[in-house]
Design a protein around this nucleic acid. Structure first.
Lengths: 353, 353
DNA sequence: ATCTCGCTGGACATTTTTTGTCCCGCATAG
DNA sequence: CTATGCGGGACAAAAAATGTCCAGCGAGAT
C-alpha cells in the first residue's frame, strides 16, 4: 500500500497540529519566546522576564516550571538560564515555531512581492519583544558572515539594528581578508550606533580590518563636497564605493527626519511628499520612489546598482510600511526582518493565511 | 549559514513537541482515537463513544466540541459522523500519532527482535478500544491486497481478527486471478469466524474465487487422515499447500484450548508445558518451541517454510506474550499488530522509549 | 397512530485548576 | 552594613473543568 508508506513532511505535521489542537500554537510560541528571551538575556529573573514578554508573572512561572521539568531551563538565585539541552534545541525550535506561525510563508511572500533573492522572517515582533530584534540581528550577522569572500569590502550603516548586528556577530577564530567600512557618515550622538563604530566592531569580530570616515553625515551639500576632496577622506570614500556587500537598516521617514534634527517645516514637507521610509539619507514613498534627498557622505542609492549584494535588516510592525517602501525601490537583494514588519509590509490580506 | 537551511524532519518536529509541550500528547491522542472510532462506528452517540473509549461523557463532549469547531466532525440527531475533512486527514493523523507514541520505533524493534521482513504497529490497544482492532484489520487487509500477485493462492485462518480483516477488505472493482482457501478446518460454532467463511468473503471482495474445506478442525488424528484421502478434500488440501501467502491470527494458549473444548486436564497439561501462544493448532512456549500439537486439517507449521509470505495479524496487550511466542518460532515474515501487544511482546524495557 | 429508545444540547452544583497577589529568606552588589 | 533582585511558598479569588441530570426531538418498531 503506497499510501501507507508515504512520509509526512514537517509542514504537514504542523498543519495537523493546528487543525486538531488549535490551542497548541499560542502555548508553544510562548514557551519558545521564553527560551529565546532567556537565551539573549540570561540570567534573568522571573519578574523581569514577565515584564519583557508582556505576560503575567504567574503565567511565566507556570511555563517556566514546565520547561524546567523538561530540562530546558535551570533556575538559580540570580535567575533563569538555559540548560545545555535548552541551548541545543533553540535553533530547531525556532524553525518549528516559524512553521507554526507561517514565517516561512511570509518570507516567500516577501521574496516574491519585492523581487528579492532571499527573505528571512524571524518569529515575533521587535516592537513587542527585544529578543526578537536580537534574534533578527543574530541571523543577519550569520547570513553576512557566510556571504563574505576573501578580499571583500563590506559597507555597513549605523543605527540601532546595525549596532545589534555587530554585537551579535560571532568572533572568528582567525584572520580574514576583509575590509569593513561605514556606508555613510555619522548621525546622532550615540557613539555605539555610528556607522564607524559598527564597522570597527564588526571588522574586529570578523578578523578583518576597517576604515572609518570620522565625519558627520549632515554636513550640508557644499561642505560635504569639499570634504570629499580631502586625500584621506577621498581614499576612504573610494574604498566604500568598492564595496561588494552593503548592509543597511531601515527607518520610518518621520522618525529619521526627527533624529536628523530637521525643522518642523522640513518634516512636514517630507510627510506631504508621501515619504514613508528612509535608508542612506534617502526618503522613499510607498511606491519606492525617492521623494527627498538629504546631503550625505558615502554611498547613495544610485551607487547601489553596482553593488553585488545589498542586505536590509530591520523589523517591528511600526517599521513595516517603511520596509515596504525601501524594498519597493528594488536595490536590496536580501531582507532579514520579523513577522511584525513582514505582515505590515505585505498588507492586511496576509491575515488570511 | 548551512544550519539555517536545514529542514526539520517530521520525527524532529514530534520530538520537539514532546520535549516542549509534554502535556499535549495525551490530548492529541485522545482526539485521534475519537476520530478513528467515529470513522469505524459512525453514526455514534456521545454516550456510546464515551463508553467504548473508556472516557467520561463530559470529556468526550469537550473534545467533540473542539473537533466540531475544527470542522472534522459533524453532529446530527442520530449521532456523530466524520466530516469530509475528517475523513481526509485521518490517515495522516494516524501517522502523526504513530510518531507521537513511538509506534514506528516499536515496529522497528519488533522487526529486529523477531527477524521479520516487516512490522506494522497500530496506535492503541485492541483490548481497550475496538476501533484499534478494526484499524489493525484494515491495515492488514491493505497490506494483503498489495501483496497479491496474479495467480496466487492465499490461505487464511479463522478467528475474530481474521473475520474483521475480511470485513475491512475494500471490494475490488474488477476480477482478479486469485484463489482464497482456508488454512485449516473450522473451529467453534460462530460461522462468521470460520476459516471457510473468511476465505469466501475475502475472495469475493478481492474479485477472486475460493475453495472451502467444509470440515471441522478437531476431527482426531485417524479420522482426519482418512478424510484427507477423500478426492474433493484431497484436492482442496493440495491447493492449500500451494499457497504463496498465508495470513493467520494468534491466540493465547489457554484461551484457545478452552475454545477448542479441551478437558481441564488437557488445558493443565498445556499450561505446564509452558505453552503461551497458539497458531494453526500448534502451541508455542515463550522460546517459540512447539510444545503441543492438536490434530488439524490443512496447513501445519512445517508446511510454512515453503510459503513465500506468512503474515500474522493480532493485537491487544493480553495477547502480547502469545504474539512473542509465535513470532519467536520464526515462520512469520510480516506482523501487523498494535501498540498494546507490541509493548508486551517486547517486554518492559521498551517503556524507556 | 403511539410508544420506546437513543440522541443532542442545555443546565447547574461541585470540584479542580488557574490566576493574581503578597511576602519571606537568601544571595549579591555597592 | 544596606538595598535590591531573586526564587519559592502561600492563599484567596476567579475561572475552568467535571459530573450529573434532563427536556425535547427524531427515527424506528409495533
Amino acid at each position: 500500500m503506497s499510501s501507507e508508506m508515504q512520509m509526512l513532511s514537517a509542514a504537514e505535521i504542523v498543519s495537523l497540529q493546528r487543525r486538531v489542537m488549535p490551542e497548541f500554537s499560542d502555548r508553544i510560541i510562548l514557551r519558545y519566546n521564553i527560551l529565546r528571551h532567556v537565551s539573549h538575556a540570561q540570567p534573568i529573573g522571573r519578574r523581569a522576564l514577565a515584564q519583557s514578554l508582556g505576560e503575567s508573572e504567574r503565567h511565566v512561572r507556570r511555563e517556566e516550571n514546565v520547561l524546567r521539568t523538561a530540562g530546558l531551563l535551570v533556575v538559580g538565585p540570580d535567575g533563569i538560564r538555559l540548560s545545555e539541552d535548552g541551548e541545543d534545541i533553540l535553533r530547531d525550535l525556532a524553525e518549528y515555531v516559524g512553521l507554526l506561525v507561517g514565517a516561512q510563508r511570509l518570507a516567500d511572500l516577501l521574496q516574491h512581492e519585492f523581487d528579492l533573492e532571499r527573505a528571512i522572517v524571524i518569529t515575533g515582533n521587535s516592537d513587542e519583544d527585544e529578543a526578537v530584534k536580537k534574534e533578527m540581528a543574530r541571523v543577519g550577522a550569520c547570513v553576512l558572515r557566510d556571504m563574505i569572500s576573501d578580499g571583500d569590502v563590506v559597507a555597513v550603516c549605523g543605527g540601532t539594528t546595525m549596532a545589534e548586528l555587530a554585537a551579535q556577530t560571532v568572533p572568528a577564530s582567525g584572520k580574514r581578508n576583509v575590509v569593513v567600512v561605514p556606508a555613510r557618515g555619522s548621525l546622532g550622538e550615540d557613539v555605539e550606533k555610528q556607522a564607524d563604530t559598527v564597522a570597527a566592531l564588526m571588522a574586529k569580530k570578523l578578523g578583518g580590518v576597517y576604515r572609518i570616515l570620522n565625519l558627520p553625515d549632515d554636513l550640508g551639500h557644499e561642505l560635504a563636497a569639499s570634504v570629499a576632496e580631502e586625500p584621506r577622506t577621498k581614499e576612504v570614500l573610494d574604498t566604500i564605493r568598492q564595496s561588494r556587500i552593503v548592509v543597511h537598516g531601515v527607518g520610518t521617514a518621520v522618525e529619521m527626519a526627527r533624529r536628523r534634527n530637521m525643522s518642523p517645516s522640513e518634516i512636514e514637507e517630507i510627510a506631504s511628499l508621501g515619504a514613508v521610509g528612509e535608508a542612506f539619507g534617502f526618503y522613499f514613498d510607498r511606491d519606492g520612489e525617492v521623494v527627498y534627498i538629504t546631503s550625505s557622505l558615502g554611498l547613495r542609492v544610485s551607487d547601489l546598482s553596482a553593488v553585488e549584494t545589498v542586505m536590509c535588516v530591520g523589523g517591528g510592525s511600526s517599521k513595516g510600511q517603511a520596509l515596504a517602501a525601501v524594498l519597493r525601490n528594488g536595490f536590496s537583494h536580501i531582507v532579514v526582518t520579523d513577522e511584525g514588519a513582514a505582515r505590515e509590509a505585505l498588507g492586511k490580506t496576509v491575515d488570511d493565511a
